[in-house]
Design a protein around this nucleic acid. Structure first.
Lengths: 183, 183
DNA sequence: TGTGCATACTCAACAAATTTAGTATTCAAC
DNA sequence: GTTGAATACTAAATTTGTTGAGTATGCACA
């Protein structure tokens, strides 16, 4: 049920539409929670049914109409009750690592290519996060409490991506070393 | 379908029983793939139906009988075909980060306690991985190729846990700093 | 002799996530 | 005047994952 709580956490400090939420999930929230467009819209419907959020239809002339959601009193209470409960670490299901485990069964070039692809992916995300840091978190001392907490989640994203890049590098180095000894 | 492939990758270098696989998943594989006992047994049945693995009943006198699984030719082909296909990064769904994002809504002590709990969890896992490293990966140069690839996955686990501990520490430091400025 | 523990495995209801395929509106560019 | 892109949202089958409750054997210990 945590997707609902993640949406609450996002909506509570910035009421918005499903469409914008999807973008937020892709850009800002992706470093700790991923959800598809379909999941988000479905969850919003459920949450409205339960009275955690309220949607207000906004008529637009220049674009399709939209529905602006904001958190209700009940929703805020639900979020706070959830916040004080202990939570467990996320389950990891990383295909790349399974492929490395069984990497000895295929041509090394296959694994190398995958590692390079992954390295680039994480490098790109890392750069994106650094840019966000520069743009929105320059002056932390004068930032709101909410912003400071948000920055902590960005730090997690930065560390996570940087760590991946480093692991890819060390693994690629090892692969290259192997190649040398086979020449 | 990647649980099946993870099981294949594990079985292919060491035929074993469902029971042992569950333990392997908890100890060795957990750093990149988590699955429950029920999932593993269900998946083994499906894989046997599909002819990817074969189970042989082993009668035991001192313990309940068991079923020893090993990968078939078809299973090996399935695994290799999967290995050469590109894979995407795992989806992250980390409740703790959502709680940090909305941390400003509750008492700081709540967040601090959660961070400390998480730090301890990752510290423990890290120590467990270091122990595994000492016990099984002392002399890498003379290790089999399979072992060297396995070591690369352990390195990922080590980095991952160490990175989490560091993030928890930096976040706790920040929290403590906040407390000071409020005194 | 009965209590707990490790081994070894099964079933089923339920919840969540993925995949695939849409509808519909407006604007801008060709 | 039609194509493509961005906005804004919907529907549903299928696959995965979670939760909870079982069954059954043999050993050690008290």
């Amino acid at each position: 049920m945590s997707l609902a709580h993640t949406i609450l956490a996002s909506l509570v400090h910035h009421p918005t539409t499903g469409y914008e939420l999807v973008k937020d999930f892709n850009e800002r929230i992706a470093c700790y929670w991923q959800a598809s467009q379909q999941q988000i819209y479905r969850e919003l419907s459920r949450m409205e049914e339960q009275g955690w959020i309220e949607g207000e239809r906004v008529i637009q002339s220049d674009r399709p109409n939209k529905k602006l959601y904001r958190v209700t009193e009940l929703g805020l209470k639900t979020l706070k009750d959830w916040l004080v409960q202990p939570s467990n670490p996320a389950a990891i299901r990383e295909e790349l690592l399974v492929k490395v485990l069984a990497g000895y069964l295929v041509d090394i070039a296959v694994i190398r290519a995958e590692l390079e692809r992954r390295r680039n992916y994480h490098q790109l995300r890392l750069e994106h996060y650094y840019q966000t840091e520069q743009e929105h978190f320059q002056d932390l001392d004068s930032a709101t409490l909410s912003m400071q907490f948000t920055y902590r989640t960005l730090r997690r994203g930065i560390r996570y991506e940087a760590d991946w890049v480093e692991w890819c590098d060390e693994t690629l180095d090892w692969l290259n070393g192997m190649d040398q000894s086979n020449v």
